[in-house]
Amino acid sequence: MNPLNHVAIIMDGNGRWGLKNAKSRNAGHKAGLKTVEKIIKQTIKQNIKYLTLYAFSTENWKRPKKEINYLFNILKNFLTNKIGDIYNQDIKLKIIGKKNFSKELNKLLKFSEKKTSKNKSLQINLALNYGSRSEIINAIKLITKNKEKINKKNISKYLQTRNIPDPEILIRTGNTKRLSNFLLWQVAYTEIFFEKKLWPDFNEKDYIKIIKKFKKIKRNFGKI
């Protein structure tokens, strides 16, 4: 049975769900947050130590300003109201991506990371304003600056996921089969599961089904 330490998720389909069910993309983002809470609880139950959630990519800035503002307001409200619960559940929060948001949000993100920094049951890596290509380029720049050799070990050392094991599972909901600039270096040997359901419809049973399927996969890593 395959060990499982890290699950990464591309939470796709919120906007489409909102248009379909409430004629509002924002309604989908709000519904998607409930799914996030369910999956976090199930991740803890499954004793998985790392969960990386793709919340906002560097390409998502192309979306309408009203939608972007709504997304960040949801995030602010969630952290303001739930950071105590996150702390009490022994969850550590880490932000990966460029933190060039409003002063208020940057302050809240920094506070949330600091408050939960010593927690150990689960580490949630929240990918905000994250793009894997720029992450890899930045790692190479740092290697060059420090006059080190460009190799796999050093690239991994300068990624924002340093000291975090690569994910064994990557789930993408929303019936879309692409990686969308997410953890391109880290998922080289990750088992990828594309789920037809939109993110707000994804549930604990779907999650458990994927985990069970993963544990039965023969993982060769290039060997026979």
Rank of each mutant, 00 (worst) to 15 (best):
E113W: 05
E67N: 14
N60P: 00
K62Y: 11
I140S: 03
I137F: 04
D85T: 14
K141D: 12
Y70L: 11
E59Q: 09
L128Q: 04
D90E: 02
E104D: 10
F72Q: 08
N69G: 13
S117P: 02
I95Y: 03
K115E: 08
K65D: 13
I83N: 10
N138K: 06
F101V: 03
L75S: 05
N106G: 00
I86S: 04
W61R: 09
F56M: 01
S121E: 12
A139G: 00
K94L: 03
K94M: 06
I74K: 11
K99L: 09
I137A: 10
A127L: 12
L109A: 04
I96M: 03
K103A: 15
K115M: 07
I137T: 12
K141S: 09
K76R: 12
K66V: 15
N100F: 11
I150N: 01
Q89D: 13
T80G: 03
A55P: 03
G84P: 01
F101I: 02
E135V: 00
T116K: 00
S121H: 13
D85W: 14
K114R: 08
Q123I: 15
S117N: 06
N60F: 07
I74P: 06
K76V: 07
I83M: 13
N129K: 07
K145S: 09
R63F: 10
I136C: 01
N88K: 14
L128V: 06
I140N: 03
L79G: 02
L79H: 01
E59A: 08
R63A: 11
A55Q: 08
Y87A: 11
K62A: 12
N138Y: 07
G131T: 04
S117T: 03
I136K: 01
K65R: 13
E67I: 14
K145T: 07
N129Y: 15
E59H: 10
S117L: 05
K110A: 13
L109D: 06
A139F: 00
K82T: 09
I150W: 02
K147V: 04
L105D: 01
E148L: 09
R133F: 08
K145E: 13
